[in-house]
Design a protein around this nucleic acid. Structure first.
Length: 443
DNA sequence: TCGTCTGAATAGGAACAAAA
DNA sequence: TTTTGTTCCTATTCAGACGA
């Protein structure tokens, strides 16, 4: 057993390292995993590998594969991330980049004319906390000019570079402080005038164009697929899965993506944000939390170890114990469903690498790496194990792991498991005991 | 009153800097 | 060189606001 005390934090294994790496640094998404780690995994693969990343996010895996001349397919359910991922992984011809640069000059001319008009602004809650009224009028004009000259953001188009740059501009001119996880606001909102915004936008665009001009020898593409979805009969089979799924913690992807998504109109209302997060594994934003209260699992068989940890959380008797127990239960239920339906997409001998983090609720440790291994084992995977990647920058028991496994063939292995409805009985009993003001007894 | 939604307050380290 | 102080960085938690 590795001495956990000796495992260090590694900033080169976090998103921080990615910021300086060309296309990888275009937009920040805190939970993005390290380019370096993906490079280490992918560099050991042969060129005829076919990689799948079922949880694409900002398409780190796809882009590293494309940079290494390897073919990769990526899945995601978030339309903004699908668009962004495809923009990051596309090759751009120098002629179309030249034309785009000319179009952007026209955009900036038109922006000057539109700045005093009543332009559309996104319906972001408390928008003046994000941007001053003046900054908003310029951003609104720039957005409208971009739509007029280049059209709305769309897949596989050179104008994506102008829109990615606009997203960067939106964040850089905002008073949101992304220097800690929960994204707070500075006390004073800085106001930018049209000249400042113009020159900032050009600086960002030039940097984006520079990195987009570097050709990619490989090919990667992001598709709109739910990682839990069953594969269809004629689906492609992959030799490697390299991915980082959501972690079982209470962080929402939507939180940090909101400003980008509202401005690019991938999102129009707060309700939609909650709906989208409910679809995501581990979603917690808005309505997703409320739905979790009444969530009921499908009847799939789950590892016995999951019942243990869910029960432990439930029996802490904390105010939100039921919610947290359901949260953990649904997370691993969904990941199990993902592994189950992943199998037909795998070539014989396919190797899985999953970068995940553990978590804790009310002091109950949730050993993600062990729970996922149990799922994989019960589904007939072999060569299962994990290694520690780094110490995370929060509670002392939180680490990042690489869980690995191999798919040989369907085995007749019958694991010890529980059917979800058994747990419902446990939950029901717990509720009855709470209502009766009785001390719940441990099973 | 209850269901939703938002974002400030936190904890827990680690890295870095200054002082002894 | 060692100790002490400061700043920074997070894949969490929860109180308060709002509206039906």
């Amino acid at each position: 057993m590795m001495d956990m005390m000796k495992v260090k934090q590694r900033s080169d294994y976090t998103f921080k390292y990615n910021a300086k790496l060309g296309r990888h640094g275009w937009l920040r998404l805190t939970p993005a995993y390290s380019v370096k780690l993906v490079e280490e995994i992918i560099d050991s693969l042969s060129e005829d590998s076919l990689i799948l990343d079922p949880f694409s996010g900002t398409a780190t895996t796809g882009l590293v594969a494309a940079e290494r001349g390897i073919l990769a397919h990526c899945f995601d359910i978030n339309p903004f991330l699908i668009w962004l991922g495809n923009a990051k992984c596309r090759n751009y011809a120098s002629s179309e980049i030249k034309n785009l640069r000319i179009s952007v000059d026209k955009v900036l001319d038109e922006c000057k004319r539109l700045v005093n008009e009543d332009n559309w602004l996104p319906d972001i809650h408390n928008i003046t906390r994000w941007w001053s009224a003046h900054t908003l009028s310029v951003l609104g004009a720039l957005r409208r000019a971009l739509v007029n000259q280049l059209g709305e953001p769309k897949d596989n188009h050179v104008s994506s570079l102008a829109w990615v740059s606009f997203c960067r501009l939106v964040i850089e001119t905002s008073s949101a402080a992304f220097n800690h996880v929960s994204m707070s606001f500075q006390d004073e909102v800085t106001s930018f005038d049209i000249k400042q915004i113009e020159s900032l936008y050009i600086d960002i665009l030039e940097a984006v164009i520079r990195s987009a001009s570097v050709p990619l020898p490989g090919f990667a593409s992001v598709y709109s697929v739910d990682a839990r979805e069953p594969a269809s009969i004629d689906n492609i089979q992959y030799s490697h899965i390299v991915t980082s799924p959501p972690y079982p913690n209470r962080i929402s992807y939507i939180r940090e993506l909101r400003p980008y998504m509202y401005w690019t109109q991938f999102l129009d209302t707060a309700r939609e944000a909650g709906e989208l997060d409910w679809k995501a594994i581990g979603g917690t934003w808005g309505v997703a939390t409320s739905r979790l209260q009444n969530w009921e699992p499908s009847g799939i068989a789950l590892p016995e170890s999951l019942r243990m940890v869910v029960s432990e959380i439930l029996y802490t008797n904390e105010k939100n114990a039921l919610l947290m127990a359901n949260y953990v239960w649904k997370y691993f239920h969904d990941m199990h469903l993902h592994f189950q339906n992943l199998r037909p997409r795998l070539k014989k001998g396919a190797v899985l690498s999953y970068i995940v983090g553990n978590s804790s609720f009310y002091g109950v440790q949730v050993h993600t790496e062990i729970l996922l291994e149990d799922s994989l084992r019960s589904l007939g995977f072999t060569n299962i194990g994990h290694k520690i990647v780094r110490k995370r920058n929060s509670k002392k028991e939180l680490f990042e792991y690489c869980v690995y496994a191999t798919w040989q063939e369907a085995s007749r292995f019958e694991p010890e498991y529980f059917r979800s409805r058994d747990h419902q009985a446990v939950q029901l009993q717990f509720l009855l005991e709470c209502n009766a003001n009785l001390e719940p007894t441990r099973l």
